[in-house]
Design a binder for these strands. Structure first.
Length: 286
DNA sequence: CTTATTTGACCGGC
DNA sequence: GCCGGTCAAATAAG
């Protein structure tokens, strides 16, 4: 499509801005860092707008879409590292704010660990078609690879009041948080939600956005934080970090890996992450 | 009793 | 025919 060079150009500009921010951060100019952040947000917003732009009807159609095959849902994956050894195969990586129900598990050829299949709990009540797959990494059992498919149309993230009533669910993949964190004394909408200290790193990788269903009323998938988003992220974690530390976060803008040192995870607010890692797109469109 | 999970069966794509 | 994904009955948990 014609927009691809434009998207690449924007990505390049964003990448350069990231580099500039790193330099500015080293000079401890908070105002400059803030300005860079605004620039990056503009890049993100522009990219989001482009990616949600409907393809013109006269655009060439991919061969595989000509048939009546079922629509391919937007899909992306995360790799979530769970530092705690207590995390077993049935426990999940990261509480992602939505309520999931497990509907299957399969042994995958060539993989040591089975893959769990989850769908949104509101599949039948609200017709939410979001699903996710969770599988332990073969190479590092502390890393869970989470693949999301489809968008949440239920508009009910777990931290809303309605979802918090589901605390009776037994701990499973959708409740990887330690019980102490689940039982917040404040049942109202939390203004500051802490990360689980078990989560040491989150790796978000886009896998496919070329079949976004524009017609279903949700032209944008529930996507990972845009700052962490790279369209062509290498799957290996061998590349060295290029670090930029904000509030203790180590953001590798090349690979999309955000490391959260355990010493600070208890003090990081979601809102701070939203502010500084463009998390705000996460639930805005679902 | 209600709801969630488990797990073998089934289905469709390749 | 193989394999990944989903279904649905059985089972477990609250």
């Amino acid at each position: 499509m014609e927009l691809t060079p434009l998207i690449q150009e924007l990505n390049q500009g964003k990448h350069l801005a990231n580099q500039l921010r790193t330099h500015l951060h080293l000079s401890s100019s908070s105002h400059a860092v803030h300005l860079i952040h605004q620039i990056l947000r503009s890049y993100d917003n522009a990219l989001l707008s482009l990616e949600s732009t409907p393809v013109p009807t006269n655009a060439p159609v991919k061969n595989r879409d000509v048939s009546k095959k079922r629509k391919v849902m937007p899909k992306w994956s995360e790799r979530v590292k769970v530092a705690s050894a207590s995390a077993s195969a049935v426990e999940g990586p990261l509480h992602d704010g939505f309520s999931w129900r497990k509907y299957g598990q399969k042994d995958i050829l060539g993989s040591k660990f089975p893959r769990g299949y989850f769908r949104c709990s509101h599949r039948f009540t609200l017709g939410c078609k979001a699903t996710k797959q969770v599988q332990k990494s073969d190479t590092d059992p502390t890393i869970y690879e989470v693949t999301y498919k489809g968008t949440h149309t239920c508009n009910r993230p777990l931290h809303s009041k309605t979802q918090q009533q589901q605390h009776h669910q037994k701990p499973s993949l959708q409740h990887p948080m330690p019980p102490k964190q689940e039982q917040r004394p404040d049942d109202d909408e939390p203004s500051c939600q802490s990360f689980s200290p078990e989560v040491a790193a989150i790796h978000v990788k886009s896998e496919m956005f070329d079949d976004i269903d524009i017609d279903n009323g949700f032209c944008r998938p529930l996507r990972p934080p845009s700052l962490l988003f790279e369209s062509e992220v290498q799957d290996d974690d061998q590349s060295p970090f290029r670090e930029s530390e904000w509030f203790g976060l180590c953001c590798d803008f090349e690979t999309g890996v955000v490391s959260i040192p355990n010493s600070v995870t208890n003090n990081i607010c979601i809102e701070e992450l939203e502010e500084y890692c463009s998390f705000d797109n996460l639930e805005l469109f679902c």
